[in-house]
Amino acid sequence: MTAPGALPISDGRLALSALLILVNVVLSGLLRLGLGRSLLLAASRMVVQLLLVGTVLEWLFRQHNPLTILLLGLVMASIAGVSAVQRTRARFAGIYANSLLSVLASSALITGLAVSGIIRPQPWFAPQYLIPLLGMVLGNTLNGISLGLDRLMEGLTSRREQVEARLSLGASRWEACLEVVRDAIRVGMIPTINSMMVMGLVSLPGMMTGQILQGATPAAAVRYQIVILFMIAAATALGVVGVVLLGYLGLTSREHQLRLDRLRTRT
């Protein structure tokens, strides 16, 4: 693969860049932060994972079978669904299934709509478009889902007395949990809103930087960025609403009971 525009980085210079991690290591040593080991581990993981992904993507971009690409998308979405749960502080039966379902449905719907309706690559499954876009959508949805789930579980636990007082006075489970559910959805969606707020002022997104280095005009790169942010906002909203509603259903019963006994705090 030849990159038009961007200067290739040789192996020697790549190794040189790794020396930058010494800044972190030295600081950690001087200030006794105790981060030395995790820094080295994180840095090595980053390098290995990216080199691997580079190889995988090179192979992938030569594929012409839509099934292979969709399968890879499915694997990526599943990893996102599982990781979203792994960041939460408590668990309940079905939490993984809820997260997987929410991530898969929201990212498939939004990425599908955006790729087929807005970007329209030829062929429609062109991996150069589909895979990076899906990746960005998944990364953000994952974040929103884990925040929303965490807040839902925390909210139902800390406001248990209020929720049960409402139930005792004849509220349905929906009426009793509405405040907590709303709050959890809001918390899951806020990071996306905040990031749109400062986009371009504080942060220059990685993908835009990449496109510009590759020789795209900033004006063209910006257009991609706008589409992606709208995709992220929509997918995150759908994913968060889905996972919070499924979680609410799982932690209450058809008999309008709050079932915190189904909740297990991680030890």
């Binding site: 139930l167 005792s168 006075l169 004849g170 509220a171 349905s172 008999e255 309008h256 009971q257």
Partner: peptide, 11 residues
Amino acid sequence: LPVYRSRVAYL
């Protein structure tokens, strides 16, 4: 249940 609980109120 909501109807039951408004007829059997728990404080």
